[in-house]
Simulated scan of single mutants.
Amino acid sequence: MTVTRSDLADFSYFLAIARHRNFRLAGLELGVSASALSHALKGLESRLGVRLVHRTNRSVTLTEAGEELRAAIATPFEAIGQAAENLNRFRDAPTGRIRLNVPVDAAPLLLAPVLPAFMDRYPDVEVEIVASNRLLDIVDNGFDAGIRHGGTVPEDMVAQRLSADLRWVVAAAPPYLDRHGTPERPEDLQAHRCLRVRIGDGNLYRWEFKGPDGEFAVPVPGRITIDETRAMLALGLAGMGLMYGLEPIFAPFCERGDLRLVLEDWATTGPGYHIYYPGRRQVPAALRLLIATIRELRPLGF
């Protein structure tokens, strides 16, 4: 059979479906809807005369023919994509699209301060940010890179530091402290209302401190558990309890007097943010330039 331009486009869609085994995730990678992918796949299967994918409400798997097609065309398509990316060396300004998976706090603290300058410098680059505290596999989910705190980056990834180490502190609204008192030592937290945090792996976060004998973690009491900083801030500012988080998150509210830090003598410092990506392929030019811009502007130090 003769391969048409439509076939080539649909082959790229098929490869994304094969990578993710999920139409929605494949669509997010390619910037098209899941229904458009489904329509394209049906057209490709019709033209080829074979079924490539088994679809149910819960799963997407490749047929034997689909596995054979994926194995045959994956490497050539990767080479074509890399060749197109390499052309950025000859352009006056790079082009491309970057998909990033970042913790919720990293979006306002690390990316928001640098993106205005980055977008002005490189007007042909698009950036998609998925802010989530869930621990995702960036390759399986179609991201070019992820951002996490140092020490939580997967070992099989290449990582680069983007910030200085970060201080973790306890904060509360003055009305809460006026009503319930100020804790002087971490053990005093057992008599307080704490806004507990459920982290990306589903566990409750144990508040970490540093004392004369080193670092230790405290399971804190609380009737409210949340998994996102904005909700925690809203409740904390309303006087609902003590909060634990990154000092830069609380800093603007402390400057206005809306929050007050407590237990500062026990505060600990943790690894800063790192960006990470697979090492087996060349880093896209647009991603390299974004990393360089963050390291140049240093919104969280370096």
Rank of each mutant, 00 (worst) to 15 (best):
V262C: 01
D258F: 13
Y277E: 02
L263I: 05
R256I: 11
R288P: 05
E255C: 05
H274M: 13
V283Q: 13
G270N: 13
R298L: 05
F253C: 05
Q282P: 14
R295G: 02
R280K: 14
D258G: 09
L297C: 02
A286S: 13
H274E: 15
E264A: 14
L259T: 01
I291P: 00
P252A: 10
E296G: 05
I291C: 03
L259N: 00
L261R: 08
P284G: 00
P252T: 03
T269V: 13
E296C: 05
D265I: 07
L289Y: 02
A267M: 03
G270V: 11
P271F: 03
R288L: 12
Q282D: 13
T268R: 12
T268G: 08
A285L: 14
Y277K: 13
R281F: 12
Q282M: 12
P284R: 06
R260A: 15
R295H: 04
G272L: 02
H274Y: 14
I275T: 02
R298H: 11
T268H: 08
F253A: 10
A285F: 07
L261G: 03
R280W: 15
P252Q: 02
R280N: 15
A267C: 10
P252G: 08
L297S: 03
L290Q: 00
R280Q: 14
L297W: 10
E264K: 04
Y273D: 02
L263H: 02
E264M: 12
G257C: 09
V262Y: 00
A267K: 01
L289W: 01
A286H: 08
R288C: 14
Y273Q: 10
L287V: 07
E264G: 07
G257I: 06
P284T: 04
A285Q: 13
T268F: 02
A267Q: 02
P278D: 02
E255N: 07
C254I: 15
E255K: 11
E296T: 15
I291R: 11
P284H: 06
G270D: 08
I291V: 15
T268W: 04
P278Y: 06
D258T: 09
D258K: 09
G279A: 09
L289R: 07
R260I: 10
R260S: 13
P252M: 12
R288G: 15
I291Y: 02
D265L: 05
L289F: 06
A286L: 05
L259I: 11
Y276D: 05
D265A: 12
I275E: 00
C254G: 04
R288E: 14
L261Y: 08
A285S: 13
L287G: 04
R260W: 03
L287Y: 06
W266M: 07
I294T: 07
R256V: 14
G279D: 00
R295E: 00
I291K: 07
I294F: 06
R260H: 10
P271V: 09
A292E: 03
T293E: 09
E296L: 08
G257S: 04
T269G: 04
L290G: 09
P252R: 05
R298T: 13
T268Q: 08
R256W: 06
G279R: 13
P278V: 05
E255Y: 04
E255V: 11
A267R: 00
E296N: 10
Y277H: 15
D265M: 03
Y273N: 03
A285T: 15
L290P: 03
L261A: 08
V262S: 01
C254E: 13
I291L: 10
A285H: 08
R298Y: 01
G257E: 02
R256L: 15
I275V: 12
P271D: 09
